[in-house]
């Protein structure tokens, strides 16, 4: 039931405490939103989950396996960074990357890439140069590249913050489709409150490195447990 368990995780950069005693269980197949103002520690938490940073304390349990002691777990996840990253190659080669490093054969690669491009609404775009795509298309390609090898969890760091409203709607559509069609568990960091309401099942509120509330979508918008998260939801928090 629980895919990723975060136990007593803390993190600091220099003297600055960035995450304080985080406890969180991400359930298989859910869309979980981490919300909080800029500087709250969302990116740091995602980078720890993707095993880029080692937390100063606490444990990460992925599928019952201790990430501190088990190798190769990153290969079962995928992360989209806040700034879109494009390899200087064709769309096909970008999307195929995760399959190539896993040693898939050519036919499987072609099939999976074309499926992933369909999922993100870029069918037949494989031959295009990736650097020629528009901002919205680039982000969709990044989604295709991230899901093509069927990761168990997709970590999204503010995936719509650089996009216009029309593209935001498309990306939200794609996020839901990925979960519905592939069953991928999705963790999304965002400070876009309406977006959380549109796509997430559950939400955690991160404030100054503290996870002050974890609640269902209905719960957080009707009866938030913490006064500070209520203020953040109402848009009264300056960030």
């Amino acid at each position: 039931m629980e895919l990723f368990r975060v136990e007593n995780v803390c993190m600091a950069f220099g003297k600055k405490d960035v995450l304080k005693n985080i406890n969180l269980g991400i359930r298989r197949g859910e869309i979980f939103a981490i919300i909080g103002p800029s500087g709250a520690g969302k990116t740091t938490l995602l980078r720890i989950l993707n095993l880029f940073e080692k937390p100063l304390c606490g444990n990460l349990i992925f599928n019952g396996l201790d990430a501190g002691k088990t190798g190769g777990l990153r290969r079962r996840m995928s992360m989209l960074f806040q700034t879109p990253v494009v390899f200087n190659a064709s769309v096909f080669d970008n999307v195929a990357y995760g399959l190539k490093v896993r040693g898939f054969d050519k036919r499987a690669i072609e099939k999976k890439v074309s499926e992933a491009l369909n999922t993100v609404g870029l069918p037949g775009m494989g031959k295009e140069k990736a650097r020629m795509l528009s901002g919205g298309e680039t982000q969709r390609m990044a989604f295709a590249r991230a899901i093509v090898y069927d990761p168990e969890i997709l970590l999204l760091d503010e995936p719509t913050s650089n996009l216009d409203p029309a593209n935001v709607a498309k990306i939200e559509e794609i996020i839901k489709r990925i979960r519905d069609e592939r069953g991928t568990t999705i963790l999304i960091a965002t400070h876009n409150i309406p977006q959380v309401r549109r796509i997430a099942d559950r939400v955690g509120v991160l404030l100054n490195g503290e996870l002050i509330e974890v609640n269902s979508i209905e719960g957080i918008f009707t009866e938030p447990e913490d006064e500070r998260s209520a203020a953040f939801i109402r848009g009264e928090m300056i960030y």
Binding site: N50, F52, R74, R75, M77, S78, M79, F81, T83, V85, F87, Y97, G98, V101, R102, R145, A146, Y149
Partner: peptide, 18 residues
């Protein structure tokens, strides 16, 4: 070469050789 490019290689499952 931007650092995010290299981190993307890692997050997609690449090794230091890749």
């Amino acid at each position: 070469v931007p650092k995010p490019i290299i981190e993307t290689v890692y997050t997609l499952g690449g090794s230091w050789k890749e």
